[in-house]
């Protein structure tokens, strides 16, 4: 039932959305520096659902059958749009997304699909992979 843990070598696929952090305009302005304190919208940062016990208790990826490894602030992932050719390095700087709110949701590019929201990017990181207006994109993640 549960998919295998996100292993160090094996890439996994996931849906990704974006969030703002650090100083920003509009309703984002109250977001602050994220769970790690130094998150910035203009840097290549990301949020991961299992950065700590307290974080995991909120995001609950296990409820969607995803067994994610603990990766703490500062860990780097390599991510790519499922149809893209550019891979970028993103650094964990926050806790999120709230995976259990969207269990089973699927996003595709052509025939390549990804299920469940396991990662969120800052606008800088997200726009290196896709368009902000799309809201959610399918990506692959590897450590």
């Amino acid at each position: 039932m549960a998919s295998p843990p996100v292993e160090v070598m094996a890439p996994t696929t996931a849906e990704a959305s974006w969030f703002c952090c650090g100083p920003a305009f509009g309703p984002c302005g109250t977001a602050g520096g994220g769970a790690c304190g130094t998150c910035k919208s203009a840097s290549l940062h990301c949020a991961w659902p299992n950065t700590s016990d307290a974080c995991f208790d909120i995001t609950r990826p296990d409820k969607c059958g995803d067994d994610l490894l603990r990766r703490t602030c500062g860990h780097q992932f390599f991510v790519k749009h499922l149809c893209g050719t550019t891979e970028i390095a993103v650094t964990i700087r926050d806790c999120g997304p709230q995976t259990d709110l969207w269990c089973g949701e699927r996003r595709c590019c052509g025939g390549n699909c990804a299920t469940n929201r396991l990662i969120d990017f800052t606008p800088a990181a997200f726009t290196r992979l896709g368009s902000l207006s799309a809201g959610i994109i399918p990506v692959s993640i590897r450590s």
């Binding site: 203009a42 940062h45 970028i88 990181a125 290196r128």
Partner: peptide, 17 residues
């Protein structure tokens, strides 16, 4: 395949907010 890496807390030079 392209790769894009920056220092973890560096500001992306090709982006503006």
């Amino acid at each position: 395949d392209d790769k894009w890496m920056l220092e973890p807390d560096a500001v992306d030079p090709d982006f503006a907010e």
